[in-house]
């Protein structure tokens, strides 16, 4: 591979990796800080992607809108709509205990998928939404546009990281960790456990929506298959577990490392004999499944383990 090709290959990996980093930070808010098991990441991701696409595309008869608004409005809409969806879900489900919340969140993702596939007035069904704009799309064309988008995505990653880090060290974050580690004593200390959990869930979902919006603008086209529920949800979980749940830096590092491994296995599997090529994606899924088992058993605290901030004594 010539050098420029290699560079742009790495750029494309870093863009997708950045989107996964946003998702991973979102899951870290929900699971790492709040101890809420969300197995429906793909659903909120998809909601954000569709919200942003509908707000920013030109008027079309095939789906709702488009409203042709600038991209920042699209991303804001992605966060708001995903946040509201998360609020509705949390209002009902946040009281459920861990395993039950996991079951319910799988169901939510499934219902959101059904809505996206069936309500074609809203999303153009399985045909999807085309012509989603890229930021600065009229200024730069071709491969350079990827570089610009890389900057946009990573600006979002840094923004979300700062936000999550602030949340983590704040009294709010401390309360969350107290609830996560010992719900009863947090309740005894007078903390409104359900209200904190609700906030956590909504914040996490809004950030997942942002990630969805970013991916819609990256691919410029959106169909239900773009939000393949298992791949998105599962990879993000593996990333967070490997990176170190509870640690925002760990979430970003985990996302990048796992995404590089995932992409590298693609290079490896493309060397396989032709009759195996079509099956290569299954081999990769198998490997990721095994990787998760390894992480869970031998490597539970992740690459960058959680470190509680020191208590200031002033």
């Amino acid at each position: 591979m010539e050098l420029t090709g290699l560079i742009f290959y790495i750029v494309s990996i870093l863009i997708a990796g950045g989107i996964y980093a946003v998702l991973c930070l979102a899951l870290n808010v929900q699971w790492g800080m709040g101890g809420l098991f969300n197995a429906g990441i793909a659903g909120f991701f998809a909601v954000g992607a569709y919200a942003s696409a509908i707000v920013t595309t030109a008027v079309s008869s095939k789906h709702l809108g488009g409203f042709g608004l600038p991209i920042p409005f699209g991303l804001a809409a992605a966060m708001i709509v995903a946040g509201i969806t998360g609020w509705v879900v949390a209002k009902i489900c946040v009281r459920l205990k861990s395993d039950y919340l996991a079951m319910a969140s799988v169901g939510i993702a499934e219902i959101l998928r059904l809505v996206i596939v069936n309500e074609s007035w809203l999303t153009n069904g399985s045909l999807g939404i085309a012509g989603v704009p890229r930021p600065f799309g009229n200024l730069v064309q071709g491969r350079e546009a990827d570089l610009v988008y890389l900057a946009v995505v990573w600006a979002c990653v840094i923004g979300v990281y700062i936000l999550c880090q602030r949340l983590y060290v704040s009294p709010w974050g401390r309360t969350l960790r107290a609830i996560r580690d010992n719900e009863d004593s947090a309740r005894a200390a007078g903390k409104d456990v359900d209200w904190f959990r609700l906030q956590t869930f909504v914040i996490g979902c809004a950030i997942m929506g942002l990630a969805g919006g970013l991916s819609a603008h990256y691919f410029k086209f959106l169909s239900p298959s773009a939000t393949e529920p298992l791949l998105v949800t599962f990879l993000v979980w593996v990333m967070l577990m490997a990176g170190g749940s509870g640690n925002n830096k760990g979430a970003i590092v985990g996302a990048i490392v796992i995404w590089f491994i995932w992409s590298a296995t693609e290079i490896f599997t493309s060397q396989l004999p032709p009759e195996w090529i079509t099956r290569s994606s299954y081999i990769r899924m198998l490997l990721v499944g095994l990787l998760l088992q390894f992480v869970l058993q031998k490597f539970r605290s992740g690459l960058i383990p959680e470190k509680s901030p020191k208590i200031r004594s002033d």
Partner: peptide, 9 residues
Amino acid sequence: VIASFGVAL
């Protein structure tokens, strides 16, 4: 539960 998610995959 997380492990069983992986086993499903």
